[in-house]
């Protein structure tokens, strides 16, 4: 099985006031073409930084030290020239950032930002062609009034509207890999379900692979083929989505599953003490595409 994305023994450390702090301690993760893979786990455990390394963003940061292997579509992202990495972003791979202000520029209208993204793929597109295609994409993510939104600046839109704009923008160039960091958090559940279904259909149609980062395990269960669970910079469990949800093997995964609040209303889940079992070796369920 060849992988579209293959990460091996990835380490990351930040230089800070008190010397080097390692935040990723050897991550292995791979995604096949067209596969939907979720990365779930503790807040601060290293999900967003992993995605930013795949995009080549942390390799360019002065106080970050990255080692290991990251192969994308046969090319080595770690040793690639900076300009080649930049050329991949927004075309072959795109990212929906967790924080909308890192994706959307506050000083340009949504219409201008769409055009800029589309011209990365095809520099000759004129504004009318860009607007037409952007309107089509915004309609697909159920933005009710795309004309108004294209003329607006991000601050004039609600949190969820900005998120849908980012999803539409990330998919407009048909990337091979979509890195989606908490793409549905600001959406109401109906729009979220609809947006994720759409994302699901689009990635299926275009054979786009997705690394899906989310704290919403219900959404993960519906969206992903396979799941990686991360705790404090280490993958603690991996396997097909069904296996992770029906027979979680690692103590951390089980604690996580038990803590999901339920609409049946049993009250707030009890919070277990952090246990040494959370640091137990990785549990691997076989099966799935990779």
């Amino acid at each position: 099985m060849t992988h579209l994305l293959d990460i091996r023994d990835l380490h990351l450390a930040f230089k800070g006031l008190s010397g080097l702090t390692e935040v990723l301690h050897g991550i292995d993760l791979s995604i096949a073409a067209g596969e939907r893979v979720a990365l779930v786990g503790e807040s601060g455990s290293g999900k967003s930084v992993t995605a930013r390394i795949v995009l080549g963003l942390l390799q360019e940061m002065r106080n970050a030290r990255v080692t290991g292997r990251v192969a994308f579509d046969g090319a080595d992202v770690m040793t690639m020239a900076q300009k080649d990495r930049a050329a991949l972003r927004g075309t072959e791979m795109s990212m929906i950032f967790q924080d909308p202000t890192s994706s959307l520029n506050p000083t340009f209208t949504i219409g201008n930002q769409f055009a800029e993204v589309m011209r990365r793929r095809d520099p000759k597109l004129d504004q009318a062609a860009c607007d037409a295609r952007a309107t089509e994409m915004l309609t697909e993510v159920s933005i009710p009034d795309p004309g108004r939104v294209l003329a607006n600046y991000p601050f004039q839109l609600s949190g969820g509207m900005n998120q849908r704009v980012m999803i539409a923008m990330a998919l407009v160039n048909n990337p091979k890999l979509l890195l989606a960091d908490e793409p549905g958090t600001a959406l109401d559940v109906s729009v979220q379900a609809q947006t994720l279904r759409l994302m699901h259909d689009l990635v299926e149609k275009h054979h786009t692979a997705v690394l899906f980062i989310s704290h919403n395990l219900g959404v993960v269960r519906e969206f992903a083929d396979r799941v990686y669970v991360i705790y404090r910079g280490r993958i603690v469990e991996t396997g097909p989505t069904d296996a992770i949800f029906h027979s979680p093997g690692h103590a951390y995964t089980r604690a996580l599953m038990d803590a999901v609040p339920r609409i049946t209303g049993a009250g707030l889940p009890a919070v277990p003490e952090v246990s040494d079992d959370f640091l137990a070796p990785m549990v691997r369920h076989d099966g799935g595409a990779s």
Partner: peptide
């Protein structure tokens, strides 16, 4: 949306604190 970016364990802890 005070806990939308939290895993469910940390979320439970924060919600208990708020309660």
């Amino acid at each position: 949306e005070p806990t939308s970016a939290l895993d469910v364990l940390v979320q439970a802890r924060v919600l208990r604190l708020l309660n």
